[in-house]
C-alpha cells in the first residue's frame, strides 16, 4: 500500500477563498508540487497579482510579495536581481497581465529576466465581478459586454503566449489547460520546465494556463471545464512555442550571479 496522492507541502494548510471548482486551486497545487519536487521551496519567492489570486500570500508556502496591479514582473525583476540565489515567480491573471500590466510583461520578456511567470487565462476579470478581459472570446457575454464581445468594438482576443513568443528574450513559452486530468498532468510537467529554465539561468519563462471562472461564466464547475475544452482551446491552442532546449535563438538575460 502506498499513498499516491496527498496534500503538497508547497501550499499552506489555509483553506482558499476561491469559488467551488475554480481551477486557480489546481494551478496553485501544481506550482506547490513543482517547488517541492525541485527542492527549491525554501528559496522560492512568489510575486502575486491584483485579482482573485491576491490572497495567495496565505496559500503559497514560501515568501510572497504582493505587487500593484499588473506590476508583478517588475517586482519579480527587482527581487531576482537583488537576491539572485532565489527562485522567483510571478502569478498573474489575464486582467492583471494582459491588460493593465502589458508593458511590464513585454519588457520583462525583452530583458529575458530570469523569472518564471504563471499566467492564468480565464477569459474574464474574476475578482471584480466578471468584466470583459483582453482575453474574453468573441461573442462571450460579460458584465461589460452583455451582448457578447464584439471584435469591431473590442478587437480580437489577445493571444499572449504567441505575442510574447515573438520576443527573442522569451526563452520558454507554452500554453496548457486545466480542463481534464491529462491536461492537468501535462500542465505540471510544463510548469516544471518553466522553473528549470530559471534554475538553468536561461532567462524568461512563461506558462499560460487556460483556467475556469465558473462563477462569472455562469456555469457549473464541470460545465466550465467543458467550456475550456470546447471554446477556449480552439482559439488558444495548447503547445510549446519557445524552449531553450530546442530553440537556439533563445538567450538568457541578466544573470547577476555570474
Amino acid at each position: 500500500m502506498a499513498v499516491v496522492f496527498q496534500r503538497t507541502a508547497g501550499l499552506t494548510d489555509a483553506e482558499t477563498h476561491y469559488c467551488p471548482g475554480c481551477t486557480h486551486g489546481i494551478v496553485h497545487r501544481l506550482v506547490g508540487e513543482v517547488l517541492v519536487e525541485l527542492g527549491v521551496l525554501d528559496r522560492a519567492i512568489a510575486v502575486i497579482p491584483v485579482g482573485c489570486a491576491t490572497l495567495a500570500y496565505d496559500y503559497f508556502n514560501c515568501d510572497v510579495q504582493q505587487a500593484a496591479h499588473g506590476r508583478a514582473p517588475a517586482v519579480a525583476t527587482g527581487i531576482r536581481r537583488v537576491l539572485p540565489d532565489r527562485v522567483v515567480f510571478a502569478y498573474q491573471g489575464d486582467g492583471d497581465l494582459a491588460s493593465i500590466g502589458t508593458a511590464e510583461i513585454v519588457h520583462a520578456a525583452h530583458r529575458s529576466e530570469n523569472i518564471t511567470v504563471i499566467f492564468i487565462n480565464n477569459a474574464i476579470y474574476g475578482m471584480t465581478g466578471g468584466q470583459m478581459a483582453p482575453t474574453t472570446l468573441v461573442g462571450q457575454k460579460t458584465t461589460t459586454s452583455p451582448l457578447g464581445r464584439d471584435p469591431r468594438l473590442a478587437g480580437e482576443p489577445i493571444r499572449i503566449a504567441e505575442m510574447l513568443a515573438q520576443i527573442p528574450g522569451a526563452s520558454f513559452v507554452e500554453r496548457v489547460a486545466c480542463d481534464s486530468p491529462p491536461h492537468v498532468k501535462a500542465a505540471k510537467r510544463v510548469i516544471r520546465r518553466a522553473f528549470e529554465t530559471q534554475l538553468a539561468g536561461e532567462g524568461f519563462a512563461l506558462v499560460e494556463v487556460l483556467s475556469t471562472c465558473p462563477t462569472n461564466w455562469g456555469l457549473e464547475p464541470v460545465d466550465a471545464l467543458a467550456w475550456v475544452r470546447d471554446h477556449m482551446i480552439p482559439y488558444y491552442p495548447l503547445g510549446n512555442l519557445r524552449d531553450p532546449k530546442k530553440d537556439a535563438a533563445a538567450r538568457g538575460g541578466v544573470r547577476p550571479e555570474e
Binding site: 502506498a2 499513498v3 496522492f5 496534500r7 501550499l11 486551486g25 486530468p181 492537468v184
Partner: peptide, 13 residues
C-alpha cells in the same frame, strides 16, 4: 485528486 482544486482527497494504491 488531480482535478480537486482544494486538496480534499488522499489516494492510496
Amino acid at each position: 485528486a488531480v482535478m480537486c482544486p482544494d486538496q480534499v482527497i488522499t489516494v492510496e494504491k
